[in-house]
Nucleic acid binder design. Structure first.
Lengths: 228, 228
DNA sequence: CAAAACTAATAGTATTACTATCACTATTTC
DNA sequence: GAAATAGTGATAGTAATACTATTAGTTTTG
């Protein structure tokens, strides 16, 4: 497994950048340090000028890679979903039992993120924090429909479809596979947010992962094929 | 019922405004027209200057009611949750069976909003659109924790607690009442968003409400007390 | 009737989100 | 080996935003 996936590159819609940031050291720096900077100051206070200062480069140089900071956010969120999709594929590859496969999928989506050594310039933990705290700003805009037409959300939607297929493989009779898939994916993110900031409305438990909640959910909602 | 609730006022944390907008015609106009304007142009493009022009008043006058547009957003989202809480209370008042009560609660949270004649200056349908498309911007900021301490999210959290109590009333043994409550509340909003913008990942059905999905969910997750 | 409260209008500031231009350096190409 | 080209850095400039401050007129109230 390791060898096959060793030199993977997560490919993101080319419309999202002017010049591929993966193609140069400066580009990789823009991504790597930009993620840390957004994690630190928040997306609102993040500017290309500040990022330029951070990497000893210039605002104008960053503008040669990305049109604006909104496209930048779309780029890194797409990268994140592409990365998650890769993990999902790898982790469920050898599992034949549909229910076990789904449980593994839930684990991949819900467990806290750990560093991936294959992508040295990207801090996945910081990126995951951005997904938790900022990512919905990438689609909550008046331009969603237009950007959706341009395929700016395909990776995310493909991931939802994959999970929904896993759900239907367990129970083809279940009526809401897509809704349940988004509940698992977006619900995981939201539960992490609530754990971090609104702990008074959480179901206290030691492990810092909502995986148990979603596992219990699918176990009770889905009838395995022979049961229905 | 009607008489008792006729002259209700939704009360919002006084820290969120400098001067109570409910106390003057100008204030009510700021709320009423502001909601329409945000619905129309989106929160990013919304400014007090534009709102001033819209209501034939002045930017500086609006600043006497609200410190900034972020507090304004918090004000109207709190109003919305207060309004929802009121509906929840009223609609479930006479129901004794815990499960029927919970189902009614789900209906209140998930069904599309209709106009409430008691609040003439507020267009609840437009406000609901704002909740769907903009509201998470009210808490996805670097200041969440600080604002949370000041009670800027109490109404929302109280609503989550109420639904979670309804869940526990049905099945005291269920382990994740809070998570399920946020899944119902925030999941409803998110499903509306997905229906509006990402229809390829929805479970196509005629009724434009995710209520059926959540009803099916609680029916299968919760064991009624006599069953466990 | 006078004082206080409220609103409108204007001006001004720092920051943001860019665009444009130019200079320098490294690399490629003929 | 000279010339063209691409990539980067630095600076300046612009329109819009998110305010603050001041003043002046209008309405309310004690």
């Amino acid at each position: 497994m390791d060898q096959v996936f060793k030199n993977v590159k997560i490919s993101v819609n080319t419309e999202l950048y002017l010049k591929d940031p993966e193609s140069t050291p400066l580009g990789k720096n823009i991504i790597g340090q930009g993620i840390l900077l957004i994690d630190k100051v928040g997306f609102e206070k993040f500017t290309f000028k500040k990022l330029g200062a951070e990497i000893n480069s210039n605002e104008s140089s960053i503008y040669r890679y990305f049109e604006n900071k909104h496209k930048y956010l779309l780029y890194i969120t797409n990268w994140f979903w592409g990365w998650k999709e890769l993990q999902l594929t790898m982790m469920t590859l050898g599992i034949n039992d549909p229910f076990k496969k789904l449980l593994k999928g839930i684990e991949v989506m819900a467990h806290p993120v750990v560093e991936d050594m294959r992508f040295k310039h990207i801090n996945e933990v910081a990126l995951n924090n951005i997904i938790i705290n900022e990512s919905s700003k990438s689609y909550l805009t008046k331009k969603v429909d237009e950007e959706n037409k341009h395929g700016h959300f395909v990776i995310y939607k493909r991931l939802v479809s994959r999970i929904s297929e896993m759900i239907s493989a367990v129970d083809p009779g279940y009526e809401y596979p897509f809704s349940l898939a988004t509940t698992i994916i977006d619900g995981s993110i939201h539960q992490h947010f609530i754990n971090q900031h609104f702990s008074s409305i959480t179901d206290q438990r030691a492990e810092n992962s909502p995986a148990g909640y979603f596992e219990n959910m699918v176990s009770n909602l889905l009838k395995k094929t022979n049961e229905r």
